[in-house]
């Protein structure tokens, strides 16, 4: 199968500022890919390149086999759905009117719109002015707009920013539904913990550079972070426990009843096995695997732009 989106050694500079630096990435139909990074890491620039709104300073971008900024760019864009970050629609228009406008621009049938509004849960508010919508409803209208014309590729820039947990779940449900229908969903976020369990692959951007990319499990294995093990033990038995696991663990904190250990991920099973043999003294065990958030912090050295 030909990849749906391919970026090869793509760089984009604005004057002396490097927004993207030698980024290579590919994504196929049926995948959900998260672009993760701080504000200004290059996520939106990447989306603009895929949309053909800007040209790369170096490297090539191919979407559905075409150059999106080239002569057939309009044809590519007709098959893309895009939700910009923090979009504010014309307040005096109704949801139905706005959706009709975007459908006509895309040469998509306007009569499919009520179905789209229903999918994002806006049927009842469809004929109200957008000015009366809540933030969550406006965001859902933005998502509805991106769904016009059954696009094969969806680019969602911060689709859940500023939404309450319920609205977030709805957005992710819609994304899952799209993926199941075979669409490629590329979403950007800085809430890594939130998307971790909901996407197939993650691409981490930091200051315009792709610092890590791959499927979630592989990235997690890459995380050189220790597993945290927190133990509650019977009074004054900490030394006995420590003796059993000392080979693989380092002590982060201890008091007569508690132990906080950092365990090498490779020896996680050994530690659990050793602790199993000490059941009579251990009252509670808490094991925390490093999430992608920890990996991201590690790779970026914890610094903020």
């Amino acid at each position: 199968m030909t990849p749906t989106i391919t970026l090869e050694h793509v760089s984009r500079r604005y004057g002396r500022l490097s927004a993207l630096d030698d980024v290579s990435l590919r994504a196929d139909a049926g995948e959900t890919v998260a672009l993760v990074g701080h504000n200004g890491a290059g996520k939106t620039t990447l989306m603009k390149l895929i949309l053909g709104l800007i040209r790369p300073t170096a490297g090539t971008v191919r979407v559905l086999g075409e150059d999106p900024a080239g002569r057939h760019g309009a044809r590519v864009r007709a098959r893309l759905g895009f939700l910009p970050e923090s979009v504010a629609f014309h307040a005096a228009m109704t949801g139905t009117e706005l959706l009709a406008f975007y459908a006509r621009l895309k040469n998509a049938p306007v009569k499919a719109n009520p179905g789209i509004l229903h999918r994002v849960g806006l049927s009842e508010a469809a004929d109200r002015r957008v000015g009366t919508y809540s933030k969550g409803m406006r965001q859902r209208l933005g998502l509805a707009q991106a769904l016009i014309g059954e696009p094969g590729i969806l680019l969602l820039d911060e689709p859940t920013s500023g939404l309450d947990p319920d609205s977030r779940r709805q957005v992710y449900d819609t994304i899952a539904e799209l993926r199941d229908r075979g669409a490629l969903v590329l979403l950007s976020t800085h809430a890594l913990a939130e998307v971790e369990s909901r996407v197939d692959r993650v691409a981490m951007l930091h200051r315009g550079r792709l610092i890590a990319a791959g499927d979630v499990a592989a990235l997690r294995r890459r995380a050189p972070m220790p597993v945290r093990v927190r133990l509650t033990v019977r009074h004054c038995t900490t030394q006995r426990v420590l003796d059993a696991v000392a080979a693989w663990a380092t002590v982060l904190a201890r008091d007569p009843e508690h132990l906080d250990l950092a365990v090498d991920p490779a020896h996680r099973a050994d530690v659990i096995h050793a602790l199993d043999g000490l059941r009579e003294v251990i009252e509670d065990v808490e094991i925390e695997s490093p999430g992608l958030e920890a990996l991201y912090r590690h790779l970026t050295g914890g610094d903020r732009p």
């Binding site: 603009k48 949309l51 709104l53 309009a74 044809r75 864009r77 007709a78 893309l80 895009f82 910009p84 970050e85 923090s86 979009v87 504010a88 629609f89 014309h90 975007y102 621009l105 895309k106 040469n107 707009q145």
Partner: peptide, 14 residues
């Protein structure tokens, strides 16, 4: 400023 220009240009329009 409203963020809709980007959206408009992301459509198949010149």
């Amino acid at each position: 400023e409203r963020g809709t220009l980007l959206l408009l240009l992301a459509h198949p329009v010149a």
